[in-house]
Amino acid sequence: MATLSIAEALREAIREEMRRDERVFCLGEDIDIEGGFGGAFTVTLGLSKEFGHERILDTPISEIMIAGAAVGAAMTGMIPIADVQYGDFLFCMMDQLANNAAKMTYMSGGTVKVPMVMRAPVGATTRGAQHAQSLEGFFTHIPGLKIICPSTAYDAKGLLKTAIRDNNPVVVFEHKLLYGSKGNRAEKAALSPVGEVPDEEYLIPFGEGVIRREGKDITIVANLLMVYRAMEAADILEKEGISVEVIDPRTLVPFDYELVIHSIRKTSRLMIVEEDTKRNGWGAEVAAQIAEDALYYLDAPIVRVAGYDVPVPFAPVMENYVVPSASRIAEAARKLMKS
């Protein structure tokens, strides 16, 4: 067992897969320039020492090209891991991701494969509205993409390795406050969870959520940073006699509805917590799906705690207000218990 941060776990996943399969390569901006950052959050730092700059390919600041090149390379026998410095820049490459990556297999009647990985950091970190968004919901809306969001080091390594071996485009959302990036790329207010990661190889299949904490009164489904906020809220609520079960779906497409339904059969109450804006988010989809399939297990309306429908503001007091906090989650839970 090694104790790794998420950034280190992701790096180990890339390293192992690049050793295992010479088709795997990384491309992105500043991903391993000597004396540079190793990607915006150090994930690819030092990999060029082992694999050289041909397989750890630093690109111009050309997001359309990065995404399109990943698509083209993937269709022609390579397995690219593309890197974008901030998830917000995915919008620059949206045509390539939504129109090409997601649709090539379909439009070709299944004759073309696009085995690529697109990594993107998300989350509000006092950088203002254009380096802050949580974009998982946007991408869950596009058929043809798989969407994963690891919140622990163990999951980060296991899920990324699965993503690299998948025959489809997989978008990996990573939270800036969870990386545990070190040195001058360390984040203020980061949680930086380190975790035990086995030395032997393992893969984590998509579509299998995990119960982070068992409880009997309320089921909270939360991803990325919100898993930790929900856990914090659960600690607060436990002292008040409210027992919370926290589910981390780990992957949003595919989504483990079975685990959620199993949980609400016990708790009869469901809350979904996401950092993204509330309107039409992935939480809305989960709520709708549960209402369609399992409403009869619920004793109260489904509650969503999410970012307010505003761009992410800069001032820390405002940012903290917009992003769901443990106290906001706890307050919503108390209210849910009364309904």
Partner: peptide, 12 residues
């Protein structure tokens, strides 16, 4: 839209 794809095929 096909031009960046050609870059990827060229890299490949």
């Amino acid at each position: 839209g096909g031009m960046p794809v050609a870059i990827g095929a060229g890299l490949s």
